[in-house]
Nucleic acid binder design. Structure first.
Lengths: 257, 257
DNA sequence: TCAAAACGTGCATAAACGTGCATAAACACG
DNA sequence: CGTGTTTATGCACGTTTATGCACGTTTTGA
């Protein structure tokens, strides 16, 4: 071990994150050489960053997480079979006449396709992709929250959107979780987005978080609320038992078929 | 093996995918030369991409997957070739730094796809379908007008939308015309929609109406403004001369290529 | 029909990888 | 201060992965 490790662990990881943001890739060997540490250490760093969703691990180094690349799955809207199952379980919470807020995210986009059209529902959203999907369902009423739309989250999370949300009290909100963990609770990749989700949770009579397996046990930089703050957590049936236990959840958990 | 592999595997495959999207084929030998790897490696890449349905393997290289079927195209508003031409002519009005309002309608949806991404443009719209299209264009900023979304028009034309529009002064507005005639001017199928278009025309520094041939010489129940109220009318080149004369237009007419 | 080009497969190799373990610094507590 | 614990790191080991090469097969086009 070096007597003077030029950079502390967090500094090193922060620097790696910075490089991933500016350049297109990072190579393990180069970083090891530059930071004067072994490649093992760099690999550990990259593994941790990847686990936190901060980069994508590839052979030889790591790539930045493709930020706005969600458009492909969203474009075809339907989502995976698993996501549809989860969305169906979430949609089962809809009752006649309700006003339902759909937060941004691919899971909620799938939910937009699953909401029944014969229950006189009103859907509120601040995400154009979801609004467009709702418009294609003739039986649903749509109310759009406006404002500056953030490209990363694909939703109007700014001041105007928050102001408009304050005028509403949805019967139920489907909160989109970027990451879910028993320790950190629900977390988001964007500060404004996290703040919006907090307000949304407070404004709604009932709050519901749906999360596919991949999101369980992961964390993102910006905390929304601990799990206990939500009324329902909907997860997939075949979630790893260890992970499921790790949630240590107080709110009721619904397991999708 | 190279001591310094210029590109990581994933980058290489991503680049191949990019080329398949822009050009209409890739050649194994060329790629090998360019990426400084053996043809075997390229062939392996192409095989993997083909297995993932990302390309079609052919002798000598690979082809992009055939264009998604028509229903998808319509869904995402690529529109017909003619409509794209018209939209391109409209998009040519965009200048660096402008704020552009896109009214609802399929022609403006096509315009959303045609706006250049390198001009620092801000797009404002009250139509979720158009907003979703703009979100898929990384170079465009998006501002969403909210409110109750009317199912028929697919846009927020109500009181709240109007109120939000009053706070804006777009540099140029692309007005969607349901029908255009020299006698009745621009007309719409919906009263609220017509009122919104009137306000939009007044609020904008420059107003532009684009209309495909089918709409010329027709009328809808609710008048917006006579043609003289608009700054530009964009029509197709091959419009019937009689119809074109019938417009008796005062504003400049641009004919799309 | 025939030769050249492209192809697939099996194999070899070196780089990159993960895991388990050892060490030493940092820390937490009494 | 001492002692046990945690943490970050490096090293050794076996495994996996990406790649190039050799060799036989298939496709293409003249």
């Amino acid at each position: 071990m070096q007597i003077a490790p030029a950079l502390l662990l967090d500094e090193r990881q922060a620097e790696i994150r910075r490089r991933l943001a500016s350049s297109d890739r990072v190579i393990a060997g180069d970083l090891a050489l530059e930071f004067q540490v072994s490649e093992d250490t760099i690999r550990r760093d990259l593994r941790e960053l990847a686990a936190a969703g901060q980069c994508i691990r590839v052979y030889g180094g790591a790539l930045p997480v493709p930020a706005p690349d969600l458009s492909l799955n969203e474009r075809y809207g339907i989502g995976t079979e698993r996501k549809r199952h989860l969305a169906r379980a979430m949609a089962a919470f809809a009752q006649r006449g309700m006003t339902i807020f759909l937060d941004a995210g691919s899971t909620n986009l799938a939910a937009a396709h699953m909401l029944p059209e014969d229950l006189d529902l009103t859907v509120v959203t601040h995400a154009p992709h979801i609004a467009a999907a709702v418009l294609d369902r003739p039986g649903l009423r749509l109310f759009m929250i406006g404002g500056k739309v953030d490209t990363k989250t694909g939703a109007a999370t700014g001041a105007q959107g928050m102001r408009e949300l304050e005028q509403l009290r949805p019967d139920i909100a489907f909160i989109g979780a970027c990451a879910v963990s028993g320790v950190t609770g629900v977390t988001a990749f964007d500060a404004e987005d996290a703040e919006f989700k907090r307000l949304l949770t407070r404004q709604s009579r009932v709050s519901l978080v749906g999360a596919v397996n991949e999101k369980i046990g992961t964390a993102a930089p910006y905390p929304v609320f601990p799990l206990s703050a939500f009324d329902h957590i909907v997860i997939e049936k075949d979630l790893d038992p260890a992970k499921r236990a790790s949630l240590a959840i107080s709110p009721p958990v619904l397991v999708s078929a």
